[in-house]
């Protein structure tokens, strides 16, 4: 059974991705803080007849990434699918943004995905098969007020993914970006009903997205059937960007 590693897999979009990939892969649920939540996701995969484990990883620190990958390799020998989902926000309007707010978001969202992808690719090259999916955001394509750091980090993932797709295509390793719009998760829980109505007005599909809207396409991009799709950016946003 192939192994899929989902960073930030204990809640929100990552949880939905982990559960869905659990139908086909051994899923390693990566978590930074709450083992309890990650364990719940892992248990749900087991209850559904799948195979799963958890690993602690702080993607912003290369030592932590090395440690997590070493433990996965020890148990499962490989990582065949990597979903770079973990990310943070530290929103502020640019004139007020502190250097720390900028650096932390870039370090975690962009550099963290560099660490994980580099480790995973070395394993995928040996197997001559691999799937990498980056969870970016429509703000990485369109920008957003108050999110210069987050938008820059998410745009950076697009360049990273496209470069990987060109370097690794000859080894049957694909790399793609999924760019969610407004999805109902903890990260968007600050939106009140009025905010939501305003958002829905801009959409072609008149509802806020669900985590499953994202995990459906991620599962496809991690399958054998998607082998001719690489270096792409797929917005899943109800038609916000057209």
């Amino acid at each position: 059974m192939k192994t899929a590693f989902v960073t930030g897999g204990s809640r929100g979009i990552g949880k939905s991705i982990a559960l869905d990939l659990g139908k086909k892969f051994h899923v390693v649920v990566g978590y930074s803080v709450s083992n309890e939540k990650a364990k719940e996701v892992s248990d749900e995969i087991l209850n559904n007849g799948g195979s799963s484990s958890t690993v602690q990883i702080n993607i912003s620190e290369s030592e932590s990434v090395d440690k997590a990958f070493s433990s996965i390799e020890k148990e499962h020998t490989s990582v065949d699918v990597l979903v770079n989902n973990a990310g943070i926000t530290k929103d502020n309007i640019l004139p007020r943004m502190k250097e720390d707010e900028w650096l932390e978001v870039i370090q975690t969202n962009l550099t963290g995905s560099f660490y994980t992808s580099q480790r995973a690719i070395k394993l995928m090259m040996k197997n001559k098969w691999g799937r990498i999916v980056f969870i970016s955001s429509v703000v990485g394509i369109s920008g957003n007020q108050g999110q210069a750091n987050y938008a820059a980090s998410k745009a950076g993932l697009i360049g990273l993914s496209k470069s990987i797709s060109k370097e690794m295509g000859s080894r049957n390793i694909t790399s793609n970006v999924v760019a969610p719009g407004y999805i109902e998760t903890d990260m968007t829980s600050f939106l009140d009903d009025q905010n939501k109505e305003n958002i829905i007005e801009q959409l072609s599909i008149k509802r806020i997205g669900k985590p499953e809207d994202i995990s459906n396409i991620v599962s496809f991009l991690c399958s054998d059937e998607s082998e001719y799709i690489t270096g792409q950016v797929i917005p899943v946003d109800g038609g916000l960007t057209t």
Binding site: K122, M125, S170, R171
Partner: peptide, 11 residues
């Protein structure tokens, strides 16, 4: 051996 192959050999 292509350039990526050289990298594989080195690794």
């Amino acid at each position: 051996i292509d350039s990526l192959g050289i990298v594989e050999v080195v690794m």
